[in-house]
Design a protein around this nucleic acid. Structure first.
Lengths: 333, 333
DNA sequence: TTGTAAGCGTTATCAA
DNA sequence: TTGATAACGCTTACAA
């Protein structure tokens, strides 16, 4: 592998000059620049990114922590972030946190130990205090889909309360009164806030929230399946189920079918997130659109702007979800 | 940030000694070692991974190239690879190839420019020759879900012909005779070989393969949807559809339902891969299990063994798929 | 078992 | 506009 040194020899200039043309800044005469470029070409020179990182104290890498590497929601998130960053010449180091405090912490520490210039994290189990403190260290932390007041400038989040509200309100407008709710793990801010939105809508319609109508699931298909099973067991009447995400809604559908319910007539189901496959469920799932791609791009832009000092205008910190009405919810007649 | 130099001063030893305890090899007396450890502790010393990389010419990073960062299949693949590598202290740099030659090439080059110690790639569009040549460069290339004869020691692949064969044979055994096939893009080895397996099964049952019964899709839901639509249009009788992957099978289901077919009675559908959500489709999807997690772990082990010289026994290069019978296929009566 | 010193391939600070 | 030269923080012969 040719080094900058050999290029300088061949071009008949100094190391610094070669470095300058490499970095495209500074003042180099056109003539000199061309000589250097030619020499690079001739030697097939490729800069060594590690050496650059060491000398410049910038690795051009951004750590990404998501709960899971598989999973429709996180897939879309990673994809958006990676594309945006890659277009700017940065690379991502991705690691999962599995929604567990220990694992999230060790993931974060791992990324820091790898000298990432910044971290974009979707963390659910660590505390706000931990994040605020960590953010004061050498590696700035950006949060996606989470709002922490003391570091709000570093947050890109969704109005989950609004989302939960929209979902339940839709059902209420359709005439449903007996509505069950399958939540995600309530220590997760997303799950907690969506439930808050649900309660808000009920209140607005003068319906008391009933603990019996709540099941706390795991954000996976199995959680939805178990939830509906549970509601069947306690044997109360209900005509609709709100699920705190789409995966659980698909589990609810499966369970409903095993109980021979005719969907959506016998049971209205609504999800949250609008992940890709919801459109291929049967019936197609009414859900709350979570603009995760836009949020991912925005998080990347925020890093590009603040950490890499690139020009990025219009950083939006809080996104608003909206309702997507499909076939799984119908008006009660 | 404390450096090795400050540790050496505080411990009253030389740089090399500190480096030795850091690398846990070499001979260091217990006493000295403890002094160094104490000094590190006291200073809160964290090794700088970039500096280590530069000096040792080893970045402890493995590049991963997959077609898409979202997508159920690739999610499971990345997750398995990452977990296995991470447990060995390595990190992954992930980038997508989008099944396009240009993008796969630039992804690969990008990973190489990032000084990855090795690359694990799921590439579909680049040629064998390109891969063989690239593998002779400074960064060894490992292929997952692809077999290239001249570098078979670096390949972890699936017997796709067998998979395609099993799927169609199952349908034939159920009494189906008019079987349609929705393939993936045929330049992709996976897609091509699955179709070969299909043909093989037909032949075994004395049924001629008919080009009219083939539709080439895109491995996505839309491909399946369009495929079934196409078969309806040409208006031939058929009782079963084989899909070259699960996503397309879900598209077929959607289309079938829009045409008021009663599944699985009116149409048997079979998929391929056994991605997570197939179990939540309605009816649950009969499919060919693709042991993608095992393959991912194996690919990681192969890298750990060959590149990082760790002990890993029993590298299996070729995996065999097997059939998972669920509700979407039923015996014709 | 420990220390010395020469890299690793860049960037960055001065001077010229 | 260019060139010396000292970092960057660590590994690794080689010597002791």
């Amino acid at each position: 592998m040719a080094t900058i040194y050999q290029v300088s020899e061949l071009a008949g200039v100094s190391l610094s000059t070669v470095s300058r043309v490499l970095n495209e800044n500074d003042y180099v005469s056109k003539k000199t620049k061309q000589k250097v470029l030619d020499a690079m070409e001739q030697l097939g020179y490729k800069p060594n990114s590690i050496a650059r990182s060491l000398a410049s104290n910038c690795t051009n890498s951004v750590g990404i922590l998501v709960s899971e590497l598989d999973g429709a929601f996180f897939g879309e998130m990673m994809s958006a972030i990676e594309a945006q960053l890659r277009a700017a010449g940065k690379h991502v180091i991705i690691t999962p946190g599995h929604s567990e405090e220990d694992k999230e912490k060790s993931g974060l520490e791992f990324l820091i130990s790898r000298n990432c210039d910044a971290i974009i994290a979707h963390v659910e189990a660590v505390s706000d205090e931990y994040l605020v403190k960590l953010n004061k260290g050498k590696t700035p932390i950006y949060l996606i889909s989470r709002y922490v007041d003391q570091m709000k400038e570093n947050c890109i989040s969704l109005d989950n309360v609004m989302g939960g509200y929209l979902a339940t309100k839709h059902l209420l407008e359709q005439g449903h009164k007996q509505i069950k709710y399958i939540a995600g793990p309530l220590f997760k801010p997303d799950a907690y806030n969506r439930l808050e939105g649900h309660k808000k809508a009920l209140k607005e319609y003068g319906i008391a929230f009933d603990e019996q109508s709540l099941f706390v699931g795991d954000f996976k298909e199995t959680g939805g399946y178990k939830g509906l099973q549970h509601f069947f067991n306690i044997n109360k009447e209900f005509t609709a189920v709100v699920c705190a995400n789409d995966e659980m809604a698909s589990g609810v559908m499966k369970c409903a079918r095993e109980h021979k319910l005719d969907l959506p007539k016998d049971l209205a189901i609504i999800g949250f997130d609008n992940v890709h496959f919801t459109n291929y469920l049967y019936p197609t799932l009414t859900t709350v659109d979570n603009p995760v791609e836009k949020m991912g791009i925005m998080a990347a832009n925020l890093v590009l702007k603040q950490v890499y000092k690139q020009n990025r205008a219009n950083i939006e910190h809080i996104f608003t979800p909206n309702l997507l009405i499909r076939d799984s919810t119908t008006r009660l007649t």
